[in-house]
Write a protein that binds this DNA or RNA. Structure first.
Lengths: 262, 262
DNA sequence: GAGGCAAACTCGTATAGACGAGTAGGTGGG
DNA sequence: CCCACCTACTCGTCTATACGAGTTTGCCTC
C-alpha cells in the first residue's frame, strides 16, 4: 500500500546546498499548495517520510515544525499531522458600532453570529474596578481608577476573541455598565442614555504572535497570529469614554473598513 | 565570570510534568519580560544553557525555537541568540489617502517617511499587463485584463511592505499610470485627472504567517506575521477603479482608523 | 454480540555525538 | 602599524537511539 500518494513527493537533491529539512518542507508545502493534500488531510506519518526520504526522524520532525510555524499544518498526538483547514472567518465591518445597529436588543457579537448561522457564547465575564495601566490611562485622559469589563467570545464553542473594556469610574460606577448584563444594545447604548452621545471611534490595529496565555485562552494552533485591536470611543464633547482592548485569533477574522476619499 | 547573570534563570522542577524544554523557555521568556535581558541583549549561549540546566543541547535548542516562534528572540549564526528589538512602527492613519494629502508633489509613503525622519526607498518596480486572478477580477467588476504595478517599499534600507495595484486596462493603458513614475500625488491623483473622481475606499485586513517568498522579500525574522491589506478604490459612479494588494511586516506597522458613530 | 485488552501505530520528549559554517579576537609576521 | 592566519566560540544541520503517551484497531474472552 503506497502510504504516500504516488507522485505527491519527489526526491531530495543532494547537490543542493539547501538544508535537507528545508527541501522536505518545500516539497510538503508545494504538495499542499497544489492541492495534493487538501484541508484536513493527514500528511504521511513521520515514519513514512523517514522511509521515503531516507533521513532520520529528527530531520523529518524539523521539516514538519517549519510548516507548523507557517501555520500550514497542525499535529495531534497519537493521530498524525494534518493540513490546517481555514476556519470560516468573521467579517468585522467598520459600521458594526453604528447607532442603527444598536436599536435592536442584542449585542453586536450575538447579532452577527446569529446572522451567520453560528452559535455565539460569552464567557469568563469579570467586572472589576482597577488602576489602569499607563497606556489605558493616557487614552482615557488620565483617570486614577477605571471599571474593567473582561469577557471572552466563542463561536460554536471555539474561542475567537477576548476583550476588555475600560471606562472611567465616574462614568460607569453604579450604572448598568457595571452589571454583568449591560442590557440591550450593550454599553454604548447605556453610555448614550447617560448623556454621553458618541461621536466617533478610533481603532488601532496590530498583528503579532500570541503570548502563551493567549494561546491557551483562544486555543490557538501553532503558526496562528493574533490581531490586537484597541478601540477608543469619544463622545461629542471630545472626551474618551471607553477603551476596548481586543485580542482576536487572526485566522478567524477579516476586518473591513470603509474610508471616505475626502 | 558568571556568563549567566546571577538570578536571571532558576532551576528546573523535576516534579513538574511540564516538559523540560518548555520550562526553560518559560524561564527565558520570564527573564525577558522582566527586563533581565533587554532588547538587543545576547542570551546565554546554547552551551551555557546546557551547562546551567544540565540538559542536552537539542533540548536547549528546542526551548530557543519556541521563543523564536513567539517572535521574542532571533538568532545569528556564529554570534548568538538575541532579544528581538521592537522596531519603530509606522502608523498608517485612515485619512492617509485623503485628497488634501495629495496636493503636494510626493507619494504618501515618501511624505510620511520624511516626516518621521527616515529615509524611504521604492524598489522592484515592475509594471505589466496581466490576466487578473479571480479575486482581483471580481473586486474590479470583471475586466479581462488589468494593469499591475508591483513595488516594494523600504525604510532606511529595511523592506517593510510590498504592494501591487491593479487597474482595469481601459482606464490605465497609455496613461501616466502605466509609467514607472506616476507623477505627483500618485495614481489616485492621475485617476481623478482622468475623470474618475474618487468617492471612497474599502480596506480588508487579515493577519497571517508569511509565505517563504514573503519572508525573503521583507527579510522577516522568525515569529513575525504579516498584515495583508486589500484596498479597493471606488469612484463617484460606484465603479471600482483600483485594487491595491499590500503585504506588510507586522512588526513595522500599526494601522489606525477613525470611524463615525453614526 | 459486547466488552475489554493488547498490539501497532501515531507524535512528544530527551540524550549523545558529529561535523559544518559563520564570527570575533588574539597572535604573529611582514 | 596593519594584515593574515589561527583559534575559540557561536549557531546550523544531521544521525541514531530510547522511552513515553495518546489513538486506533482488532482480536479474544465472556
Amino acid at each position: 500500500m503506497p502510504a504516500i500518494p504516488s507522485g505527491a513527493l519527489g526526491a531530495l537533491d543532494p547537490t543542493s546546498d539547501r538544508a535537507v529539512f528545508r527541501q522536505i518542507a518545500d516539497q510538503l508545502r508545494d504538495a499542499i499548495d497544489k492541492g495534493r493534500f487538501s484541508e484536513g488531510d493527514k500528511l504521511p506519518s513521520e515514519t513514512e517520510l523517514v522511509e521515503h526520504y531516507g533521513v532520520s526522524r529528527m530531520t523529518v520532525r524539523n521539516s514538519l515544525s517549519v510548516l507548523q510555524g507557517e501555520g500550514l499544518v497542525f499535529s495531534e498526538h497519537g493521530k498524525g499531522v494534518f493540513v490546517r483547514p481555514r476556519p470560516p472567518v468573521r467579517r468585522l465591518a467598520s459600521d458594526r458600532f453604528a447607532r442603527r445597529h444598536r436599536e435592536q436588543g442584542k449585542s453586536a457579537f450575538t447579532v452577527e453570529a446569529d446572522a451567520a448561522g453560528s452559535h455565539p457564547t460569552v464567557d469568563s465575564l469579570e467586572i472589576k474596578e482597577e488602576r489602569p495601566t499607563q497606556d489605558i490611562a493616557t487614552r482615557l485622559g488620565g483617570p486614577r481608577r477605571v471599571l474593567a469589563r473582561h469577557r471572552r467570545y466563542l463561536l460554536d464553542g471555539r474561542p475567537v476573541e477576548f476583550a476588555t473594556s475600560y471606562l472611567p469610574l465616574d462614568i460607569a460606577r453604579g450604572t448598568q455598565i457595571a452589571e454583568p448584563n449591560p442590557g440591550p444594545g450593550g454599553i454604548y447604548a447605556r453610555l448614550e442614555e447617560l448623556g454621553h452621545r458618541l461621536d466617533h471611534f478610533e481603532e488601532e490595529i496590530r498583528a503579532r504572535m500570541p503570548a502563551p496565555h493567549e494561546v491557551r485562552s483562544l486555543r490557538l494552533a501553532a503558526g496562528v497570529p493574533v490581531i490586537h485591536l484597541i478601540r477608543t470611543a469619544y463622545d461629542t464633547e471630545g472626551r474618551a469614554v471607553e477603551v476596548c482592548d481586543t485580542v482576536m485569533a487572526a485566522d478567524a477574522y477579516v476586518l473591513a473598513y470603509q474610508l471616505p476619499a475626502t
